[in-house]
Structure formats: structure tokens, C-alpha cells
Design a protein around this nucleic acid. Structure first.
Lengths: 182, 182
DNA sequence: CAGTGGTCTAGACCACGGG
DNA sequence: CCGTGGTCTAGACCACTGG
């Protein structure tokens, strides 16, 4: 009944950050050093780091190190905001249905909160979230229309991995040959 | 300038699913078989599968296999709904601020959409989302109060990993000893 | 019991960054 | 240059599921 090693390490590092061992912006020891400290392989240690990165507690910088992130008012801190995450953690299947989607003139309240200029328009969306087909949330979201236009242009779906859209990664060969140099 | 192998495999498998090679609910070949097919190690293949699981395209069932998920009206499909994901992909730091949080009587519209019964109450939350301190969304979310009560009880923050809250994983020892059996 | 995903090892080479 | 994170290998044992 013991938790996987990488989760134990996750908890340990999280505790030490909360205890103030490292401050926001500090670099924590390298993966290789931490692997020695915790007496595990580097791959296992990376799993622990990954869970902390996923939580927004740490952030990695290639070639530079791993740093304590500035979490500010991060999602999961305020309780109910991480609703979808909780659903996933409980093994539910989150989905959503958009039931309305239109451009409109912002209300005074919306204009203040989104710091809009006079004449700016907004896109207003209504959607229902489900967990395994059970409705768990009804949401009305208002976003500055300018932002939406930008995103439409850049073809959102392609920006998922790094900036991979520039590479058109070769994906045609099903059976790949051994990587060359390594 | 070539994409990592696991992303190439991710793209390939995604293509084959979109092409209808496997239908929703189908079990795809095992990780070991796919590793042979793509001529990579199982760990590398698991990285590819993981990205597909993260996208909600596949789902794993311990001891049973990996299956094509029923995505339905999944988040990222409908464009603007995956706003936060897009921000993350672009290197922005997403945050949010809750500006209102109270229990209320549902409107008729809310009652219908959340399939509430007479007398059911809701929790209504207003929040602003930011990307690197720039407000990008104003949201009003309404959830059935019964659900919120449940989540309050079970101490949300502890349900992050599996059902780990029951285990109180030993995290006190910084320097761990070698795992026993392996 | 046979197969599957979950975890873990002890190495390796690469591209990137400036403590 | 030298350390860092990113990727990858070729194995291994475990817990779980039921084709």
C-alpha cells in the first residue's frame, strides 16, 4: 500500500518548498543531484518533477535549471476553481457543450474587468460542463474580441507542442528506422 | 530540426485514429506491441501515449489496455474553450482571481441546464482569468451546491493523485533507501 | 494464468544556456 | 566550456484485469 516513489518525492519536495527551503525564483538542485539525494534514477526523479511542473509549483528552463514558479493566484489555490482537474483526478470524463457563441457589446462591468477601451467588442460564450454526462457547471465567459481574432488567425490546434507548427514534423513513416547518431 | 520521436509517434497514432483505424471504445495494440511497431523502447512509446491521453484522445485502463476515448464535445475541439491550454502552450502564465462567491437560488435557465430539482441551490462564482497579468476572460460559473458541499468535505487538494489521501504516504525521509525487492 | 499498464533502473547522447 | 533539462534505450518487477 505504499505510494510510488515518484509521488513520495513529489510530496517531499513540495513540503520543502512550502517550508521555505527555496523561494520563488530560486533554482532547485539539478535533476542529477536530486536523483542522488533521493537515491533514485534520474528518470524517476523527472517523474516527480513533472508532477510539480504540472501543478505550476516548478518550472523548467532548458539549459538553465528548474525553478520555483511564481504561482500568484494560480488556478488550484482557490478551491473550487480546479473543478475539471478534480473530475479528472476522480476518474470522471470531463466534457463540455457550447450552447451559445456570439460577438456583443460589453456591459460596463465586463468592460471594467477586462480593461477594455471604448468601442471594444467582446465574444460571449455559454457552455455546460459535464462529468460523465452529469452537468456540473453552467458558465458564461466573456473575452475581448481582439484576442479571439488573433487566436483564429494562428490556428490554435497546431500550437499544442512547443512551436512545432513551424516544423511540419515528419509523421508519414509508421515503422521508423533506428535513430541515426545515438 | 526534427521533432522528438515521441511526438512523431503521437502524430502518427492521432492520424490513424482520425482516419478511423480504431473506433471509439476500441482497444489499440499494447504498449509493448506498439513499441515494436515503431521501433522504439517502451518508455518512449509511453511518452507518445501520454500526450494522447493528456489530449483526451486515448484512455488507459490498468490491466486491460489503452482505448480510444469518447471525446464527445471535448474541451479543445470547439476552438476558444481551451483558452487556458493555449496560454500555457504559448508560454504565458495563466492565473485567475475570484471576485465573487456565493450560494443562490438558480434561475430558470440554470435550473434547466444543470438539471436541478425544485429547491436545489447553486453556488455562483465570478472570476477573471489572466495571462501574464493581462485579463483575458470574465466568467460566471454556476454549479449545483450539492456538488460543492461534497467537494468541501473531501478536502479537494488531497485528491490530486489517485486516491492517495487514504495512504498518508511516508514523506518524512529525505534520503530514501533502495527499494527492497527490485 | 497470460496480458496489460504502472513504475523503475543505470546508463547514453543531444541542444541549449550562462549560474 | 560545462552543467542543465530533453530525449531515448533495453531491460525489469509489480498490481491489476478478464480480451
Amino acid at each position: 500500500m505504499e505510494a510510488p516513489v515518484y509521488i513520495q518525492i513529489h510530496n517531499q519536495i513540495k513540503k520543502e518548498i512550502e517550508a521555505g527551503k527555496w523561494q520563488i525564483g530560486d533554482r532547485i538542485p539539478s535533476e542529477r543531484d536530486l536523483a542522488v539525494t533521493f537515491n533514485v534514477s534520474r528518470m524517476t526523479l523527472r517523474q516527480a518533477i513533472q508532477t510539480l511542473v504540472d501543478e505550476g509549483i516548478l518550472e523548467r528552463r532548458i539549459g538553465a535549471g528548474t525553478f520555483v514558479a511564481n504561482q500568484k493566484v494560480q488556478e488550484r489555490v482557490s478551491g473550487v476553481t480546479s473543478f475539471t482537474d478534480i473530475m479528472i483526478a476522480q476518474g470522471k470524463r470531463p466534457s463540455s457543450k457550447t450552447i451559445s457563441y456570439h460577438v456583443a457589446k460589453p456591459s460596463l462591468s465586463e468592460s471594467e474587468k477586462l480593461k477594455l477601451k471604448d468601442g471594444d467588442q467582446v465574444l460571449r460564450m455559454e457552455r455546460i460542463r459535464f462529468a460523465d454526462d452529469v452537468p456540473i457547471s453552467f458558465e458564461v465567459a466573456t473575452v475581448p474580441y481582439d484576442l479571439v481574432k488573433d487566436f483564429s488567425k494562428s490556428e490554435v490546434t497546431k500550437s499544442f507542442y512547443h512551436t512545432l507548427e513551424k516544423k511540419k514534423a515528419a509523421t508519414s513513416s509508421a515503422a521508423r528506422s533506428k535513430p541515426s547518431v545515438r
